[in-house]
């Protein structure tokens, strides 16, 4: 018993040293790091199983896998919608466990989220939907009036500001979401199945936009099970299966290893 605990302690020490080393290396090039992250739900089913993943600033990472492989859970941990059962997630060098509920809002402003189901407010116009993201953070009116049209121009919806979401196509709605995600000038865009509800043409447009954004320096994390768009991106591909990373290719194609 005693011996076991001693061994355990030594292991911990080694782990700790590793971590310190990692922290030093991390400095400013790493944006998101999953450190031995597991997520286990009540029924003992591990959604994520000992994930170690590092995403550098300015990277474009596609995370692929069957539905239920744990993609969404992984992404939700970045904006602390879910917390790991074991391990830690580091964002910009800081463990997300350390972020208090009060500070959580500020953390989330550094992340732009995009979803399959858009999550636009139907009773607000395109302009208002994007402006809302600034309003709720207490941005002055003048700044809102200046920034929102700029962002909408970037995604190509400058002429549809006064339309309501229901008057737009799916692709256009997703562009509004993208504009809303960009309005805070986030460090990273986290896109969870952004093309799940779109036809191939619109999907490609969205990926192009994401690639453009990435070129300008914003990190992009894209979860998808759509071959075409992952191949189109032709960037780093991480393959998840049953909560484990089974492949991590720097210049990958969509595949189930």
């Amino acid at each position: 018993m005693k011996r076991e605990s001693k061994i355990k302690k030594e292991e911990d020490n080694i782990e700790l040293e590793d971590r310190i080393e990692e922290l030093e290396v991390e400095s400013d090039s790493t944006l998101v790091r999953f450190d031995h992250v597991s997520k286990i739900f009540k029924n003992d089913k591990a959604i994520l199983d000992n994930i170690n993943l590092e995403i550098k600033k300015g990277e474009f990472v596609s995370i692929v896998g069957h539905s239920g492989a744990g993609k969404s859970t992984l992404l939700k941990m970045i904006h602390v919608e879910e917390s790991p059962t074991e391990g830690s997630v580091y964002f910009d060098g800081v463990s997300l466990d350390m972020i208090s509920r009060r500070k959580l809002a500020y953390h989330r402003r550094r992340i732009g989220m995009i979803f399959q189901d858009f999550k636009l407010l139907p009773q607000k116009t395109v302009f208002e939907n994007v402006a809302y993201a600034l309003e709720v953070c207490g941005t002055p009116k003048a700044e809102i009036l200046e920034d929102v049209p700029q962002i909408l121009d970037i995604v190509g919806l400058g002429d549809k500001m006064e339309k309501f979401p229901r008057q737009l196509s799916g692709g256009e709605q997703q562009k509004v979401v993208l504009a809303r995600a960009l309005i805070h000038k986030p460090l990273v865009i986290v896109a969870d199945e952004p093309t799940g509800n779109l036809d191939p043409n619109n999907s490609l447009e969205i990926v192009k936009l994401l690639l453009d954004i990435n070129k300008l320096g914003t990190t992009v994390i894209l979860a998808s099970h759509d071959h075409d768009i992952v191949n189109k991106a032709s960037k780093r591909v991480v393959v998840l299966d049953h909560g484990k990373i089974i492949c991590d290719d720097a210049k990958g194609k969509y595949k189930i290893c």
Partner: peptide, 17 residues
């Protein structure tokens, strides 16, 4: 519900919600 979800998403402070 929807607004609250979006508010959290875009980083509205707890107080604002």
């Amino acid at each position: 519900k929807q607004e609250i979800e979006v508010m959290r998403l875009v980083g509205a402070s707890n107080m604002f919600i």
